[in-house]
Amino acid sequence: MPTTYFQRSGLRRYLNETGEVWLFAQRFFREAVRRPFEWRELLNQCFIVGNQSLFLVGMTGLIMGLVLTLQTRPTMEDFGAEAYMPAMVGVSIIREIGPVIVALICAGKIGSSIGAELGSMKVTEQIAAMEVSGTNPFKYLVVTRILATTLMVPLLVIFGDAVALFGSYLVEHMKGDVSFQLFFNKVFRQLSFSDLVPATIKTFFFGFAIGLIGCYKGYHSRKGTAGVGRAANTAVVVASMLLFVLDFIAVLVADIFFDL
């Protein structure tokens, strides 16, 4: 039978995989509410996810705040609007730049690590060994990791935002002699409910997406050690793309409900 363009193209494979990820997510929700709960492993994973990324997120946040302020300040000065610097930096970091950049860092650091770890467990039959010992490996390995990223990425974003604002303050203090209290007063006076809530909610979805894609790619890793590398790599690529799609959707939804 001659193959159609649809069958030959990557589109079919892409749609198949999208369906499989959807089924994987459905299984996560089913297993997450079913006993027994793996509390110890969940806490362990929360610690690993948080601890693994804390330094990187902190460094990225600091540089993000420094660079954004250094690059924007001359233009603001041209308009005589340097007094608005803290407000401008605060809104842009908390609403958009902070969540997206920190989530991308986490996709690279955590997503690849989960993909490689589960992929390696798959090809060395450790997942099969759990299964034949009467343990549910999906619950132990996947549910705990997805929950850990869903809970920890928002905390990492808050930490990254705080460090970025501190970086911005350092520049403002050096260039404009702005005090710590004045800087943060200006930042928080400008921020409203509609800035904080959507920005925080979307980070839970970012964390979920990073965990989901990392686990999916690792859990379905095949073809030996090369497959492990591919799982880690595609986990980062797909999760990063998904983050931008989710961010776009989050902005659209926030625009409807909060009239941005």
Partner: peptide
Amino acid sequence: DRLRTEVGFLFQGSALYDSMTVRENLEFP
């Protein structure tokens, strides 16, 4: 899962959980 506890399986490559100690490997099931 209940039946699997009555049927042990020794894998060709041992398949020990490499993030756990020997104690934890035995403790896990």
